[in-house]
Design a protein around this nucleic acid. Structure first.
Length: 113
DNA sequence: GGAGAGGCTTACT
DNA sequence: AAGTAAGCCTCTC
């Protein structure tokens, strides 16, 4: 019953996409923030972003979504991390060589309805 | 229809 | 700062 096409799942995916798209340039948010706003587990948000369509990934600033506290988790693929880091740097954000945002509080974007 | 394995996390130590 | 442990969801066979 891998009902990934359920109405609830599809709607939730749209909500996540919408929130991510609302993130201003030069700013970032966390999986936990989006997850908390949608009343779902952080992991589910990450799953949706990971399963995004190439077309949506090209329009959505998924790179502005990082792990808790503006840190990039280590479980992610190195190539993906590098791409995300490069995209964030291109937006004016400063990322540590280890994948840590230098001023998380200054660039943090709280999710709101 | 049911069971098993995996994952872009989080929080704690 | 890094590593480990726990817990929840989705996907695939």
């Amino acid at each position: 019953m891998a009902a990934a096409g359920s109405e609830a799942s599809e709607r939730l995916r749209a909500e996540v996409l919408r929130l991510v798209a609302l993130i201003p340039e030069g700013r970032f948010t966390t999986y936990g923030s989006i997850a908390f706003r949608l009343k779902v587990n952080p992991r589910r948000v990450a799953w949706f972003l990971a399963r995004l369509s190439p077309e949506e990934a090209g329009v959505l600033p998924w790179h502005r979504v990082v792990a808790a506290e503006g840190r990039i988790s280590r479980g992610m693929d190195p190539a993906l991390r590098a791409e995300q880091q490069e995209l964030l740097e291109a937006e004016g954000l400063e990322i540590d060589g280890k994948g840590f945002v230098l001023d998380p509080d200054r660039h943090f974007h709280a999710i709101r309805s």
